[in-house]
């Protein structure tokens, strides 16, 4: 039986310049931040980031790793607009594919099902069609003849997700109220990496939560990273809430280059997740 336990740096070693990388979670909620920081301090470049965006997108824009972002929104939740993402967009330093949130899900689902596209009404009549000139419509072959958006598959080279618990083989469990679309991200990707708060023996998973909380199964996962506080500063219920004070500090650095340099050196350049956690604890 495969033991898939690896480290953040092992994950980065599997990634290549120019890859399309999907990141699970939602806004500033249950983001695989230890993996995001490992990418941020790596030599990787020209990545396309696919995300229900939060600080994962902001950080990867701010450190120049993202060449393109595919998103429906980018938000820190308690701070509605992600300041580092805004800065990158307003500077024109990243390419963008902006989609309706439902279209985005449909694109992941099409990729998961190995379909070229899935039809939807969402997007019709809106400027999503204008700002994404590659989008096409498709006509129903049945009597209704309705014209629909043909949402193309959002195929991912790699997916990164964060769970509360997992076993060493990649069965992953979320304990908060919302699974988001982490299973779809994994199914849409060629290489799939799961970080988690704690790795437990398989037989202990059911003690942690009900069977329905076992969202990710080992068929969906290539590597498992144990990263306690791995979603910090985003929330990871029921293990911890969002670190609002830290998030405020992060957001404020978008307007202050000196503060950003300090933030980056202290937290993003920390050589390991353990070193980051130490830096956070000693604030």
């Amino acid at each position: 039986m495969a033991d898939k336990r690896i480290t953040e740096d092992d994950v980065v070693a599997e990634l290549r310049d120019g890859m399309t990388i999907g990141i699970g979670g939602w806004g500033s909620r249950r983001k695989p931040m230890s993996l995001v920081r490992a990418i941020a301090r790596s030599p990787l470049r020209d990545l396309t980031i696919v995300s229900y965006g939060g600080p994962d997108v902001g950080i990867l824009c701010a450190v120049g790793k993202a060449r393109k972002v595919i998103y429906g929104f980018v938000s820190l939740d308690s701070i509605p607009l992600e300041p580092h993402f805004r800065k990158a967009r307003e500077a024109g330093s990243v390419d963008a594919m902006e989609l309706d949130e439902g279209m985005f899900q449909w694109g992941l689902r099409a990729a998961a099902y190995r379909l070229p596209f899935l039809p939807t009404r969402a997007g019709l009549g809106s400027d999503v069609m204008r700002i994404n000139p590659a989008l096409r419509t498709v006509r129903s072959p049945y009597a209704d003849g309705e014209e629909l958006v043909a949402m193309p598959a959002l195929e991912l080279d790699a997916a990164l997700v964060h769970m509360n618990r997992a076993d060493a083989r990649g069965n992953g469990q979320y304990l908060g109220p919302d699974p988001y679309f982490d299973d779809l991200f994994c199914m849409a990707a060629k290489r799939r990496f799961l970080s988690c708060e704690r790795i437990v023996p398989t037989e202990k998973l059911r003690e942690e939560g009900p069977i329905q909380s076992l969202l990710i199964d080992r068929m969906m996962v290539d590597g498992v990273v144990e990263a306690p506080m791995g979603a910090h500063f985003t929330e990871c219920p029921t293990d911890y809430g969002r670190d609002e004070a830290f998030q405020k500090e992060y957001a404020a650095t978008a307007k202050d280059p000196a503060a950003w340099a300090k933030f980056k050196e202290r937290y993003l350049d920390a050589p390991s997740h353990a070193a980051y956690v130490e830096a956070v604890k000693s604030r």
């Binding site: 965006g53 509605p80 805004r86 439902g102 969402a122």
Partner: peptide, 16 residues
């Protein structure tokens, strides 16, 4: 949209 003077939320769920 290509280089906005102010990036706001994104279209979110509004089209759908």
């Amino acid at each position: 949209w290509r280089k906005p003077s102010s990036q706001l939320l994104g279209v979110r769920g509004a089209p759908g």
